[in-house]
């Protein structure tokens, strides 16, 4: 059989493409690492970023914003900018409806209220046509409404840690054993996709601690979260640092309940060294008489 040059070149090209395709999984840890900056910048507080934050275009970020919108029944919210905070504009805080993570929003309505709008009739009309209402002391729709979106966003972007933790929190709102089990299953799925993160094992540990009362199992997860945090202490973003801080709080309390004073003391010491500005750990330290 005579091999024509064209056929040979085609075969070589195909082989080259196939080998590149074969090796492509190797670059996954580089282009899509299992731990990265998961925080979506909508929480940034400069005016420009606050504005542009609404235009993040990745699918999971968009879904995240949609989920936030559904929790507010379509009322679009945005973070308060530094300038606005200096001007004394108050945040449209939520009523304390038991959703700690949803309550701490620090946001105002994207469509401005009449007192901070210079547009006159245009502003009045926009407040009528947009899904707008006064959001001071607002409530949220049942987060379960948005749960399918959290499933969709974590399916699209498994490294989006916030999607897993908020989704886990929503499922855990069902205080029955079934709700806790579903929350833990969801969080464990997220942890498998993000084995080096702090937030997810920390939340698993906290959920087990608060719902099952299985202290030793809870400590196991909280220790994993602490270990992950210590390994990545210098590269963590603000959100993950907060998760680590919470991990120290719960770990200290879990050791206290397990009557392991030495471990509680060591945890608090380490935690106070890492988070010098923390108020709770010195308080526990003092109360325990260390």
């Amino acid at each position: 059989m005579i091999l024509r040059p064209g056929f040979l070149i085609g075969l070589l090209a195909f082989s080259a493409f196939a080998s590149v395709g074969w090796q492509v999984q190797r670059v996954k840890p580089i282009v899509n690492p299992t731990i990265r900056d998961e925080n979506i910048d909508v929480g940034e507080d400069s005016s420009t970023v606050s504005l542009l934050g609404q235009f993040r275009t990745t699918a999971s970020a968009w879904l995240w914003l949609r989920a936030d919108s559904y929790l507010h029944n379509g009322v679009e919210m945005r973070p308060l900018s530094e300038t606005e905070a200096k001007k004394g504009i108050t945040v449209d805080n939520a009523k304390d409806d038991g959703n700690e993570r949803l309550h701490a929003e620090n946001e105002i309505t994207a469509v401005p209220s009449k007192d901070r709008d210079f547009r006159g009739i245009f502003g009045d009309v926009e407040r009528r046509v947009a899904s707008y209402k006064d959001m001071h002391n607002h409530t949220h729709n049942d987060p379960v409404v948005a749960m399918p979106l959290y499933r969709l966003m974590t399916w699209l972007d498994p490294q989006f840690v916030q999607g897993w933790t908020i989704g886990g929190m929503i499922l855990a709102r069902d205080h029955s054993g079934d709700g806790t089990a579903r929350s833990l299953a969801f969080l464990r799925e997220g942890w498998a996709a993000n084995p080096k993160c702090v937030d997810i094992p920390s939340q698993i540990g906290y959920t087990i601690y608060s719902r099952h009362g299985d202290i030793s199992e809870s400590i196991r997860y909280l220790e994993i979260a602490r270990g992950n945090g210590m390994q990545r202490l210098n590269v963590m973003d603000e959100q993950e640092r907060d998760a680590l801080r919470t991990t120290y709080h719960f770990l200290a309390m879990a050791y206290r309940d397990a009557h392991r004073a030495d471990m509680e003391q060591a945890t608090l010491l380490e935690g106070m060294k890492v988070f010098r500005d923390d108020n709770l750990m010195p308080l526990i330290w003092k109360r325990q008489g260390f």
Partner: peptide, 21 residues
């Protein structure tokens, strides 16, 4: 502000898509 076309005023999508508006 008055010169720019106020397209957002014609968009009732937020109200139409959510419940109870």
């Amino acid at each position: 502000n008055v010169s720019l076309p106020q397209y957002s005023l014609f968009d009732l999508g937020g109200r139409a898509a959510n419940i109870g508006w």
